[in-house]
Simulated scan of single mutants.
Amino acid sequence: MCYSAEIKADYKLFVRIYGAVISIKRFTELFWEKREDGGWTKIPKAMRDAFRQPESEQGFELAKLVAEADREQGVAYQAELDAQAERLGKAEQVLAGPRPTRKAADDQRIATNKIKAARRSLDDLLRREPETKDSRIYPGNYAPVMIVKDGQRVVVPMRYQCRLPGWNEKTERQYPGTYNARRDNLEKTWGKLFGHRHGIMIVTRFYENVSRHKMEGRELAPGEKEENVVLEFDPQPPQDMLVACLWNLSPGGDHGTDLFSFAAITDEPPPEVIAAGHDRCIVPIKPEYLDAWLNPDPDDLAGLYRIFDDRARPYYEHRLAA
Rank of each mutant, 00 (worst) to 15 (best):
263 A>S: 15
263 A>Y: 08
263 A>C: 14
263 A>K: 08
264 A>T: 13
264 A>P: 05
264 A>G: 10
264 A>S: 05
264 A>H: 02
264 A>Y: 00
264 A>L: 08
264 A>I: 08
264 A>R: 00
264 A>Q: 08
264 A>K: 02
264 A>M: 12
265 I>D: 08
265 I>F: 10
265 I>R: 11
265 I>G: 03
266 T>S: 03
266 T>K: 06
267 D>W: 14
267 D>A: 14
267 D>N: 15
268 E>M: 04
268 E>V: 08
268 E>N: 09
268 E>G: 01
268 E>D: 11
268 E>S: 01
269 P>N: 12
270 P>W: 02
270 P>S: 05
270 P>R: 04
270 P>D: 13
270 P>V: 07
271 P>D: 14
272 E>A: 05
272 E>T: 00
272 E>R: 12
272 E>N: 11
272 E>S: 06
273 V>R: 08
273 V>C: 11
273 V>T: 04
273 V>Q: 09
273 V>I: 08
273 V>H: 02
273 V>N: 01
274 I>G: 04
274 I>A: 15
274 I>M: 15
274 I>H: 09
274 I>W: 09
275 A>L: 01
275 A>P: 03
275 A>I: 01
275 A>T: 00
276 A>Q: 10
276 A>L: 06
277 G>R: 12
277 G>N: 04
277 G>Y: 12
277 G>C: 07
277 G>V: 11
278 H>D: 01
278 H>C: 05
278 H>I: 11
278 H>R: 06
278 H>L: 13
279 D>C: 09
279 D>F: 03
279 D>V: 13
279 D>S: 12
279 D>I: 07
279 D>Q: 12
279 D>N: 15
279 D>G: 08
281 C>D: 02
281 C>S: 12
281 C>E: 08
281 C>T: 10
282 I>F: 12
282 I>P: 14
282 I>Q: 06
282 I>V: 15
282 I>T: 08
282 I>D: 05
283 V>C: 09
283 V>D: 05
283 V>T: 00
283 V>L: 15
284 P>N: 08
284 P>D: 04
284 P>K: 02
284 P>G: 10
284 P>M: 09
284 P>T: 00
285 I>M: 03
285 I>D: 06
285 I>A: 10
285 I>L: 15
286 K>M: 15
286 K>R: 14
286 K>P: 07
288 E>P: 01
288 E>F: 02
288 E>Y: 11
288 E>V: 14
288 E>N: 06
288 E>L: 05
289 Y>Q: 12
289 Y>N: 13
289 Y>W: 13
289 Y>I: 01
291 D>I: 03
291 D>H: 08
292 A>F: 01
292 A>G: 05
292 A>I: 01
292 A>D: 09
292 A>N: 02
293 W>L: 14
293 W>I: 00
294 L>P: 03
294 L>T: 10
294 L>E: 07
294 L>C: 02
294 L>M: 00
295 N>P: 11
295 N>M: 15
296 P>W: 07
296 P>R: 12
296 P>S: 08
296 P>M: 01
297 D>K: 04
297 D>Q: 06
297 D>S: 14
298 P>D: 04
298 P>T: 05
299 D>W: 03
299 D>Y: 09
299 D>Q: 15
299 D>L: 11
299 D>F: 10
300 D>V: 03
300 D>A: 06
300 D>C: 03
300 D>G: 12
